[in-house]
């Protein structure tokens, strides 16, 4: 495993921890999109179907369990927790799951490396992960005051994607036969979706003002 891949996994882990920290300690999910969180839960469910059948490493299995567990835990907190759910911004979080899930599933049926069930689900998870952040970005745009933890959550997620691209470039040059068009293109699309957010995030940090995305 190279340093980019490891750092990417760690920033991904950080993003989840920041979000859980916010929800668990402040008992608030203000500014967090339930739609995005539900899509991530679906992404991990579809991608890690092989968790029991295909052992790669202890690291791999533990990380998969963490991402699966935390994504469902976050959804549970927002939907069911007596206090947390009160802060959920239902009026502004209006993105429809199906508009993202259905096209991704159809695309996975059409464009995949092998048309086996697990392979299609894996491809579906890549396509869906690429666009799963959209409801969250829309919600941020509609939110006047983005708190620090929410901003950091999205920042860490974006950093994770950027580091994965470095990882692919590194692996392409160091490993024989490492060519994965589907992973690369969906990963690139996903990273580009953060470009706008990053621009405003760094500006707010540089000028030391509160983060706000233009409508």
């Amino acid at each position: 495993m190279n340093i980019f891949r490891f750092s990417g996994d760690m920033t991904h882990l950080m993003s989840v921890l920041v979000l859980l920290l916010k929800i668990h300690t402040i008992k608030s999910c203000a500014g967090i999109s339930l739609k995005t969180q539900e899509l991530y839960a679906l992404v991990f469910l579809a991608r890690y179907l092989d968790i029991v059948t295909n052992f790669i490493s202890l690291y791999n299995t533990i990380m998969k369990l963490i991402f699966l567990g935390s994504s469902f835990m976050i959804v549970w907190y927002i939907r069911r927790h007596r206090i947390v759910r009160r802060s959920y911004d239902k009026e502004h979080d209006t993105f429809r799951h199906l508009f993202l899930v259905l096209p991704c599933f159809i695309l996975a049926l059409l464009i995949n490396e092998r048309s086996a069930f697990k392979e299609i689900m894996w491809t579906f998870s890549l396509y869906l992960e690429a666009v799963a952040i959209l409801p969250q970005l829309v919600l941020l745009q509609r939110t006047k005051n983005i708190d620090n933890l929410t901003g950091q959550y999205v920042f860490f997620l974006g950093a994770y994607r950027a580091l994965y691209i470095c990882n692919w470039i590194y692996r392409y040059f160091t490993e024989p036969h490492y060519v994965h068009w589907i992973t690369w293109i969906s990963g690139l699309v996903q990273t580009l979706l953060y470009a706008d957010f990053f621009y405003y995030y760094f500006n707010s940090w540089k000028n030391n003002v509160k983060l706000q995305l233009p409508a």
Binding site: D9, D50, N60, K64, W122, R171, Y178, H180, T183
Partner: peptide, 10 residues
């Protein structure tokens, strides 16, 4: 332990 398919990624 890294498999050929890149499926060792999360």
């Amino acid at each position: 332990t890294e498999d050929q398919n890149g499926k060792d990624e999360l």
